[in-house]
């Protein structure tokens, strides 16, 4: 028999070391592990390469530690990234906003630069969990985790962000849209660390909205949609739509976006967009609702996000 995930969430597919017997275990006490606190990215990369499969980077710990308590993750080594200077911070680099991986969700909310240039990041960060989680949880951990329930990945895809990954073989840039391969499966190679995220700043006056349906504060989305668009007169000129927690990876809803480009978001085009978005969703049935419901509200989130984004263009 498959044990239900006690947290009511699917067992992460790539949690490398499952409990010894890979069977039922009911616990909220983590197994033993050793703790490392490197002072540089190079040291961290070296540690992760040397320690191999059993080592995991530790950022805010708000995704990893709950899994360790349930022993769904049993890393033998934690490589804490908090000791590395330079992984934290938000700066403007030309037309990009560069966010260090260890920047917390609270830091995003507190940043005037984010509020000014990419306000949707602000809006979405405020919908993540609660203040305690946001004080610890990092943007790097949020996007690197590969959890389809996390809000930042779909948003990063919508914004066309790229991730900087540093590993034993040097540094490389991967587009957010290329990063997610499956639930908890990402483009991260063994020994690699995500060090920063580069977000192209959307054009001034753009419209944006992140619509997230959740059951309560602290819950992951039943379905959520991110929209960034620009208008030419009363018609949609450009539009990108991202979807959270309706598939094993975050999604870009290109057909849905195409369905509204050139329209004035009349009832028919909104309906077409929702239908196109629903067509690519394949959520799991869980306590948030059956598949049919999660898709249906996913479509509604798209509709509402489009309407609100159009309304707040300047």
């Amino acid at each position: 028999m498959i044990a239900p995930s006690p947290a009511g969430r699917d067992r992460p597919a790539n949690v490398r070391a499952l409990s010894a017997k890979d069977e039922w275990e009911e616990t909220m006490i983590p197994g033993s592990f050793s703790y490392h606190r490197p002072a540089s990215v190079a040291d961290a990369v070296k540690l992760l390469s040397d320690l191999g499969e059993d080592a995991r980077p530790l950022a805010g710990g708000h995704s990893l530690v709950p899994m360790m308590k349930l022993r769904l993750a049993t890393p033998a080594h934690l490589v804490d990234l908090h000791g590395i200077a330079g992984l934290k911070g938000i700066r403007r680099d030309g037309n990009n906003l560069v966010i260090g991986a260890m920047t917390t969700q609270h830091d995003l909310l507190a940043s005037d630069e984010v509020g000014k240039s990419v306000p949707i990041l602000n809006e979405a960060a405020l919908l993540i969990a609660d203040p305690q989680v946001r004080y610890r949880g990092t943007i790097g951990g949020n996007v690197a985790n590969g959890d389809p329930g996390n809000d930042m990945p779909a948003l990063m895809m919508t914004l066309g962000a790229t991730y900087r990954l540093e590993g034993p073989g040097g540094a490389r840039e991967v587009a957010a849209a290329e990063f997610y391969q499956g639930a908890y499966f990402t483009a991260l190679e063994p020994g690699e660390i995500l060090t920063s995220i580069s977000v192209p700043v959307p054009p001034a006056g753009h419209g944006y909205a992140y619509e997230k349906l959740k059951r309560k504060v602290g819950d992951y989305a039943t379905a959520a949609a991110a929209v960034v668009l620009t208008m030419a007169g009363d018609k949609v000129a450009t539009c990108t739509i991202g979807l959270t927690n309706v598939h094993e990876t975050p999604l870009l809803a290109a057909d849905a976006a195409n369905a509204v480009i050139g329209t004035s978001l009349d009832a028919t085009s909104l309906k077409n967009a929702a239908a196109a978005a629903e067509a690519i969703m394949s959520p799991a049935a869980d306590a948030r609702g059956p598949v049919e419901y999660r898709k249906h509200v996913g479509g509604i989130m798209v509709t509402r996000a489009l309407q609100r984004a159009a309304a707040n263009t300047k």
Binding site: M1, P4, G8, R9, D130, K216, V217, D219, D286, A287
Partner: peptide, 20 residues
């Protein structure tokens, strides 16, 4: 229907916060 408890944590067992 197979006898698994599917509401074993406060993620799924509805415990309202002050907000709700």
């Amino acid at each position: 229907e197979t006898g698994n408890v599917v509401t074993g944590s406060f993620m799924d067992f509805f415990m309202p916060t002050a907000v709700e």
